[in-house]
Structure formats: C-alpha cells, structure tokens
Design a protein around this nucleic acid. Structure first.
Lengths: 119, 119
DNA sequence: CCTATACACAACCCAACAGTTGTACAACTG
DNA sequence: CAGTTGTACAACTGTTGGGTTGTGTATAGG
C-alpha cells in the first residue's frame, strides 16, 4: 500500500483479514445490518463498523439506508478484478510450463535422432 | 491476521502489496535471483529480501540454492487456494441471485395472471 | 589466500491497522 | 415527548509492516 492505494491493493488487503472474509461469507448468503454482523464476532459494534468501512473502500460491499438500519450487501465486481489478476499470472506461468514441455519434447525428439544414429 | 496467520490471510496480505505483486508478475515470466528482482525497484536488496520472505511464508514462491545465487520461482498452488475461496463465495452470491431472479419471474407470472383477470 | 559478490540478519523508524472506550446523533417505539 | 435502538465519529493504545542502515557470511574467482 504505502501511498499507492491502488484498486488491487485495497481489495487484497481487505481480503487479508479473517473477520472481513467472514463478513463477506455471511453477506454472500444474505444482506445484513451492522448489528447482525456484530453478533457473529466477539467484537464491539465499532470494530465491525471499521471493518465495513474497509470493505466499502475496497468496493467489496455496498451500503444503503433502511430506516435506522444500514444494511450491507456484497458487491462481487471487485472480486472479479482480483481473480482476474491472479488468473492472468497463473496463465502466464502455465504457458511457460507449456513452453518448457515443448522444449523438453523437442529435446527428447532430438535425443531419439541421436539414438538412431548411434545406438 | 493478529494471531491467526491462517493460510488465506497470509496469501491475501502477501498479494496486498504492489511491489510483491510486481515480483510475482516478474516470476511468472521466469525465475529470478534476488539481485535481478532488486534491479526492478527503487529499493534496497534488503527490502526485496523481506518481500521475498513474505512471499515464501505465504508459499507463493519457492527458493533454491544455485551457487551463491538464491533463485526464486513462482508457486501457483496457493493462488489456486485464493481463487478457490473467492469463487466459492461468488458462486453462493450468484446462486442467491438466481433464486431472486426465479422469485421475480414467479411474481411476474402471477402479475400476468392478475392482468388477465382484471386488465 | 584474498577479495568481491550475493544474500541474510539485526536494530531501528515511522506509518497504518485492529481494537478499545466514550460519546453523539438520528430514527423508531411507546 | 421520552427513552431506546442502530450506527457513526473521535481519541487513545498496542501491534504489524515497509523501509532504512549497518553488519555478518558463504561462495566464486583471481
């Protein structure tokens, strides 16, 4: 993070906390109010509110107003972004392996040629 | 994190830093030594070594010894774990929407019935 | 053997973070 | 209208994190 505060850093560091992941897991099932979420943890309401603020800043949740309650809903768009980044580099790495496999295949083919020449 | 240090927290917090993500991006292309990685950033070798330690602790890279060099290689297994977690909850959320869509569809069907009765 | 190289370890600094308590405030409830 | 409920804001504390400098150490090369 430091100064950057780029999108991915916000998302990943939001996901880095077990409490926040638990909140997201809960919200995947159904929207919830701050108090409903607070009941899930051995934490004060204020602590949960702080976590929600982090999640909101990372655009992982959205919040509306419903009377005195302030329900939270999961927003999966940034999760797509995060998976996108990971997948991209998993893919490059996989391709690299493909290339390695191709390379080894190539070697093996030449090996056979040598064997034919001098068995 | 705090005390937990579970697998996912280690992975996500490792991914939360732009420098570390850049390191992984570089390693997706090819293995590299500490010095090679250091050249990429305006950082001291020690700072890069610290980042590598974090990545190693999260099992996102593996390190071997080759003479005096200590090459780093990407390890994609935990990336799978991370994507797994995200996907699981994206899926739950998507299913929830399916149910909502079904519900709305249901409502709409009934609405039509009413319209037929009293247009 | 001596020196340069590639890296790690240790101590320290400062900023950010997770948590707390205490309080303010707006919106429901009787 | 008074009291309760749901939530946010503020100030403080202890801990973690990224960065630095300074130093140690094993390996490679002349």
């Amino acid at each position: 993070m430091t100064v950057v505060d780029d999108e991915l850093s916000l998302v990943f560091s939001a996901l880095a906390d077990p409490t926040r992941r638990a909140i997201l897991e809960r919200l995947a099932l159904a929207d919830a109010t701050v108090n409903q979420l607070t009941e899930l943890f051995a934490l004060t309401q204020q602590a949960v509110s702080k976590h929600l603020k982090v999640l909101e800043r990372a655009h992982l949740i959205t919040r509306t107003r419903s009377g005195q309650a302030r329900p939270c809903a999961l927003d999966t768009e940034r999760l797509d972004t995060a998976v996108g980044w990971i997948d991209r580099h998993r893919q490059v790495w996989a391709d690299r392996h493909d290339r390695l496999d191709a390379h080894l295949e190539n070697l093996r083919a030449r090996q056979h040629q040598h064997e034919e020449k001098a068995p």
